[in-house]
Simulated assay, not measured.
Amino acid sequence: MVLIFAAFVNRVLGAAGEPQNLVKLEGFCINSATGDCFLVYEYVENGSLDLWLLDRDRARRLDWRARLHIALDLAHGLQYIHEHTWPRVVHKDIKSSNVLLDARMHAKIANFGLAKTGHNAVTTHIVGTQGYIAPEYLADGLVTTKMDVFAYGVVLLELVSGREAADETGEPLWADAEDRVFRGRDERLEARVAAWMDPALAGQTCPPGSVASVVSVARACLHKDPSKRPSMLDIAYTLSKADEHFADYSGESVSVDGSGEIAAR
């Protein structure tokens, strides 16, 4: 079997203007005997995020700071395809198994097999993964960047809780969060989050205000009205502020009120 390899895009990772948080396409292979073509991507050493969250030994090694940085990496990757490409790209299949972690635990978005260019398109062919599908896409087939924002909110809940996007009965994680975390007075948010978060984070350096801020971002991302969901630029900014909690964290509780929520862009 003769394989023809052509390396043709993104040769030097980190070049000016190059996206850091997307899995790099290295080239393609063609089987000259059958005509089959295979895409060749960069090797991402630490595998997918879902494997880290669901394996208890790995989850304990994935502290809150690492999870927050993964959330930021993913936000930057989505911001790039939503705001720095023309036409805009909607990934359509954001989920923890499509988030890959490199040797330094930086996150990269993978699997653009369902991606669509353009904005405000409508389709009758609904595809996706249970627990991540935005309600407007499921009901009306509406394809916008805000469906990626919804799925991103689910990934944030996975990072906080260490649980899958849908349980064995099919109940989505976001529905459980609505019942047990989102509802209630904002001044009690940290207490509700602490009772709901991944046990693997217990006993680690984990500023309550930082975690509550991420949950507030997730709540905004999961708004049923897509026009009221934030942009990825807003999300990245808010999460960078959550990261700053570490600089000031003294081990005491930090409150989060309604002003910690982010508005639609």
Rank of each mutant, 00 (worst) to 15 (best):
G118L: 08
H119Y: 14
H119I: 14
H119S: 15
N120I: 04
N120R: 07
A121T: 12
V122F: 03
V122P: 00
T123R: 08
T124K: 09
T124C: 00
T124M: 15
T124N: 09
H125D: 15
I126G: 15
I126K: 08
I126D: 13
V127H: 13
T129P: 03
T129W: 06
T129R: 05
T129S: 12
Q130L: 06
Q130H: 13
G131N: 05
G131Q: 00
G131A: 01
G131V: 04
G131S: 12
Y132L: 13
Y132F: 15
A134M: 10
P135M: 08
E136I: 12
L138E: 14
D140H: 15
L142S: 11
V143Q: 02
T144H: 02
T144W: 01
T145A: 14
M147P: 02
M147C: 10
V149I: 11
V149A: 06
F150Y: 08
A151Q: 03
A151N: 05
A151V: 07
A151I: 04
G153K: 01
V154M: 07
V154N: 04
V154Y: 07
V155N: 00
V155P: 00
V155F: 00
E158Y: 06
E158T: 08
L159D: 02
V160F: 00
V160I: 07
V160N: 00
G162K: 06
R163M: 10
E164D: 06
E164S: 11
A165E: 04
A166C: 12
A166F: 05
D167L: 05
E168I: 08
T169H: 13
T169E: 15
E171C: 07
P172W: 09
P172A: 06
P172M: 04
L173G: 08
L173A: 02
A175C: 10
A175G: 11
A177M: 14
D179C: 15
V181K: 02
V181Q: 07
F182V: 12
F182A: 10
R183G: 12
R183F: 13
R183S: 15
G184W: 06
G184S: 10
G184L: 13
R185N: 10
D186E: 12
E187N: 08
E187W: 15
R188A: 09
E190P: 06
E190Y: 00
A191E: 14
A191V: 14
R192K: 09
V193C: 05
A194G: 12
A194D: 15
A194C: 14
A195R: 13
W196N: 09
W196Y: 05
W196F: 14
M197K: 06
D198L: 03
D198I: 02
P199R: 11
A200W: 01
A200D: 10
L201Q: 03
G203T: 03
T205Y: 14
C206V: 11
G209L: 00
G209M: 03
S210W: 02
V211D: 03
V211L: 04
S213V: 14
V214C: 09
V217C: 10
V217K: 01
A218G: 13
A218W: 01
A218N: 05
R219F: 04
A220Y: 01
C221I: 13
C221S: 08
H223M: 12
K224P: 14
K224G: 07
D225A: 06
D225I: 11
D225S: 15
P226W: 08
P226A: 05
K228P: 09
